[in-house]
Computed example of a mutant assay.
Amino acid sequence: MICSVVPVAAIEVYMDVRSQIEDQIRGFSEPVSDKLLPDLAPQEQHVLTLVLDLNETLVYSDWKRERGWRTFKRPGVDAFLEHLGRFYEIVVYSDQLSMYVDPVVDRLDPKGNIRHRLSRVATKYENGKHYRDLSKLNRNPAQVLYISAHAKESSLQPENSVEIKPWKLENDDTQLLDLIPFLEYVAMARPSDIRAVLASYQSGDIAAEFIERSKEHQRSVDIFLCSITFLYLIDGNLNVDVPTPLL
C-alpha cells in the first residue's frame, strides 16, 4: 500500500482558493446588501412598504423584429401609483438588470411615486431563479406587502405576497385598479401584522373578496343602526352587539 502525505502548505493554499471561489459565488447569488433600503425616517415608522414587481405586473416588454423592444404600461398603473403613493412607501423590486429597470421606472413614474427601485443585484439567486428576499429590505416584515404576477415563484416570503394575473397587453385589464380599495383600507387601518390580514383571505382573489367583505360589513352596520334606533324608540335600551371591524 502506498501512502501519500499532502503538505500542510498545499492544503492551506487549497482552502484559500476555495474560500475565494465561494465568496465570488456568494457575491452573485446573495443580495448585494443585508439592508437594501435606507432607514425610514422616524416620522414614517408607521408607513407600510408596498413592494411591486415590474414585468407583467406594472409593464409588459415586447420584442418584434421590425422595431425591436418596446415596453407598455399596464392599464390603471398611473392612477395606482399616484393614489397609493400617498399611503405607502412604494418600491419596485425586479429580477432584471438595472440598465433595464432604471429607464423603465423613469418613464413609468415621472412624478416620483416610486421611492426606491431594486434590480437583479438585490435578488437571491438559487436553483436557477432570482428570488426577491423581503427580509433584506431593512423593514419590519409585518409592514411589507409584495405584489407580483409571479409572487408564488419569485418571493422567499409568500406570507407577505399577493399574486395578481399576469398582464400580456389585454386592454380590458383592471387588476391594479381593483386592488386600490383593499390597499387603501389596509394603509388606513394600520394592522399590527399585514401577514395575518393576507392569511385571512382564502379565495386567491383578494380584491374581489375584499369587496364582498365590505358589502357584508355594510349590511351588518345597517342592521346595527336599525337595531339601536328601534330599541331606543321602544324602551331606551341600546344593548346591541357592535359589528366586528372589516380587518
Rank of each mutant, 00 (worst) to 15 (best):
Q43L: 07
D53R: 11
E82L: 10
S33F: 03
H46R: 12
Q45E: 08
K73G: 10
L48W: 00
R65Q: 12
G76Q: 02
R70D: 14
H83A: 11
T71G: 04
A79H: 13
W69I: 06
L40G: 06
R86V: 00
R86K: 09
R67S: 14
E30N: 14
R86L: 00
F28Q: 11
P38I: 02
R86Y: 00
R70H: 07
P31D: 06
E44N: 11
R65L: 13
S61M: 02
K35M: 09
L40S: 15
Y60L: 12
D39V: 03
Y60K: 11
E56V: 01
D34V: 03
Y60T: 12
L48S: 00
L58V: 06
F28R: 12
L81C: 06
V77W: 05
L50V: 07
D53H: 09
D39E: 13
P38D: 10
L81M: 09
F80M: 05
L58P: 12
E56I: 00
P31Y: 04
F80S: 03
L36R: 10
R70Q: 14
W63V: 14
T57C: 05
A41P: 03
D62T: 04
L84P: 01
W69L: 13
H83Q: 15
P75M: 11
P42Y: 06
L37I: 02
S61Y: 02
H46Y: 11
